[in-house]
Amino acid sequence: MMILIRQELFKLFKKHSTWISLIVMMVIQIGFAVMAKIHPDVFNPQETYTTGYYATTLLVFYLIAASSSIITMEFQYGTIKNLLYREYSRGKIIISKWITLLVYSIAWLVWINISSLLIKFILFPKVDLGANLGHGYTVLTSTIVVDLANLLTVWLILSIVILLSNLFKNSAAAISVGIIGSFVTNIMSGMSAQLVIKWPWLKWNPLNMLQYPDQILSPSEIHLTRLTLTQLFSGNLVYIVLILAAGYLVFQHRTV
């Protein structure tokens, strides 16, 4: 299994697109940081810090792209044959891909936090990381907690993307569908709040789970979601496990 994960990381590491995404992200972070420096009234320096200078928004797209291509790519290039005919079972192969994506998402989050801290210290010495944001969080801790909560809800989306990517044999198509899907999801999750008000039992629908990070900093959202933070957390986990399991079963039966 370690060998498979190492192979997956090696491929990600050697892809041009990985390094291009890193450069694009840095350009965007620096761009927003400079804007916040020049127009602090438009781009609040403290808020831009908590969003990683907009890197966290970009990260969602990066992770969707990586998740949709990690399986699709193998079918597109015919390399799935080389992966599958060796001694490893299909189960091990798909699990190694999940773990790789998890490592990849965590590595990005760590990088975003480090780079944001650097930018803050260089450009915004006046932003106070220890400032109290209420509900027991400071600027620094709220950023970290919300990043981790976002990681959880992003994985709910990624598990769906991985499941759906089994339908495609071309990475570009899978990535487009994944990204368009995430926009649609965002729009629908707004509608979801209205539906939950009408039919309370709908509060368990997966779209409602996506509100988890928001509710951490604004506990009053409980009136919209009708779920406690613990319920939202567990709901996300359960959905992720179920959807990944469905993807696992589909992959078990894929032929070449």
Partner: peptide
């Protein structure tokens, strides 16, 4: 076992 089936599966990058 080593194999080449139909066409070579290669990572172009």
């Amino acid at each position: 076992v080593g194999a080449l089936i139909e066409y070579p599966g290669l990572y172009p990058f």
